[in-house]
Amino acid sequence: MNRFKYPKITSQFMICIIAMLLSACVTQRVENVRQGGTGINEGEGIVIMAKSYHLGNQTEAKFISCVGDAVSRGQSALRVIPNQEFVDALFPWFEPRTAPAETKGLPALMARPRVAEQIESAGVRYIVWLDGDTDRVDGGGSMSCAAGPGGGGCFGFAWWQNDANYEASVWDLTGLEDTGTVSADVSGTSFLPAIIVPIPLIARAQNKACNALANQLKQFIISEDVT
């Protein structure tokens, strides 16, 4: 008699299934708009900067360092010059008040004393200007916790949604032109169910946006196509 054998369900497999069911929800959209040719040569690098807060930009310092780290690691890694080092070396021309807001300000900037030489010696080919931030756009639910002599616990359910919307403009300092933009819009909903013990299921929207933007930026800069 043939007996049908059910697959053996291991504890690791069960943990995977539960983790997938309980995972937070993230959606992402990454796009780029190309205006000019790119490409990068040996010894050339990029610097990643936040658009000026004098213009109302709110990009977080940790997002800038996250994108810098991600661009400088992995496949097609690019040389990333630390932005504070770049800003200090070119003081005062890349301060929030003085940094050029458009590429048409670049020729005048390059004509200033020793600016072009400093940029060349640092090996900076592209400036990537980051704009955008991560906001909590919605949330709800309730949770109450209590503790007594015999122990404590929580009961309830809370959720919140974070939207991470970032745009990176890529300026070519060789051609003094705007080569295009890369954008990443990530929406993540996190959940916090609690039956005695709260179980946080966090959607890392900002982290996802960082990695998505960095990967797209690498492709954008390395690719030499003009479409």
Binding site: L90, F91, P92, V115, Q118
Partner: peptide
């Protein structure tokens, strides 16, 4: 402190 400025 401030960095050395690139000015004449």
């Amino acid at each position: 402190t401030i960095p050395v400025p690139l000015i004449d």
